[in-house]
Computed example of a mutant assay.
Amino acid sequence: MNTQTQTDKKGFIPVMLTPFKDNGAIDFDALTSLTEFYLQAGAAGLFANCLSSEMFELTEAERIQIIEHVVKVTNGVVPVVATGTFGGPIGYQAQFVNRVYDCGVQAVIAITGLLAESNDSDAVFNDRVFDLINQTEQVPLGFYECPVPYKRVLSAEQLYQFVATGRVIYHKDTCLDIEQIKAKLKATEGYSFGLYDAYMVHAVESLKVGSAGLSCIQGNYFPELVVWLCDNYNNSSLTAEVNQVQQFFVDNMDVMHDVYPIVAKFYLQKRGLNLSTFTRRAVGNFSAEVKSKVNKLYDDYSNLQLQLSIGSLV
């Protein structure tokens, strides 16, 4: 994956869905197709076993099975990262980090909200991060400011301290604040490290100030559009089109988040992928009104594809 010292080429890292069968079992055939779909779209890497994967609704064994499957299907074409911390004593979390790394991933991602309680100080959190680093040998690590169980956003100074160890190479940022993004990038400048922004409202600006790429749920609708933006965000001959794409993401933010990931699975069905809309996580009612909005999104994107001459993947 891109690092901050390689800012010329930006990358899209999908936060992968987990396809389930209608009976709730993991659908590994659909997971194969979905992985290939991301790769065909031009993804620079894959984030397996994340919140979009319904990771908290998976057993430990299922988490490992999914990660191993994605690594096998990807077959080294792009690197894979995956979550490896799910609460409990740091020693216990470190054991699972090592298990995940043994699956063949490039880096193991730590959930910031599971390394300390919400009322713990930054000092307590920092101590636990360094404890995790010490107990995971030479495993490359990353962070994800996951909103579940609560969102703990790292400061630029904290991120610098961790990256300076040489062990932290990846960060999925959800601070939603371009000024914080700038501060984090400045603090970690020169290190072999990549910050991937999740917030598409300021996607273009984030790429321009040095983010290594984007890692957003919008890639579970039209990954090729996110790749297009990563490729063309700074193309002076496409300024109008880039602005149009940026606005498209802004305008459709709400519909893509409503009863997610059911809506994303339904959208991918419309694109031709053979997967169920079943989710283990309770995310609300997929009502006729929500479905109507997703259908409109599909039509609007189809028109945008034609305007930008982006081919359909399926």
Rank of each mutant, 00 (worst) to 15 (best):
L308S: 11
I64M: 07
F20A: 10
D251Y: 09
Y160L: 11
Y298W: 14
A30Y: 02
E117L: 08
K21P: 09
Q135G: 07
E241T: 00
G210N: 03
E145W: 00
C103Q: 07
E68R: 15
L225R: 05
V294A: 05
Q40A: 15
V209M: 04
E289Y: 09
L176I: 14
K72T: 13
S292P: 00
Y267S: 07
A203T: 11
I262G: 06
Y267K: 06
I64P: 03
G11N: 11
A240M: 10
Q307M: 10
N274H: 12
Q106R: 14
F193L: 05
N220G: 14
V245W: 01
S211I: 02
A264I: 07
Y260L: 10
D120E: 14
Y199F: 15
N49S: 14
D299P: 00
E57I: 03
M1K: 13
D102K: 15
V78E: 02
V250Y: 12
V78R: 01
G42P: 03
R167S: 03
R167M: 02
V245P: 00
D131R: 09
N119P: 00
M200W: 10
K265V: 09
L141E: 02
P261M: 07
L214N: 11
I262K: 12
T188C: 11
Q247Y: 08
Q246K: 09
V204Y: 01
M256A: 13
S121C: 06
T174H: 09
N220E: 07
M256N: 12
V290L: 13
I111E: 00
D102A: 15
E36W: 06
T165E: 03
P140H: 05
D27T: 10
R280H: 12
I109N: 05
S215A: 15
A30I: 02
Q106W: 11
V242G: 00
V124E: 11
A44E: 12
P223N: 06
S237N: 14
D231Y: 05
A240P: 09
V148C: 06
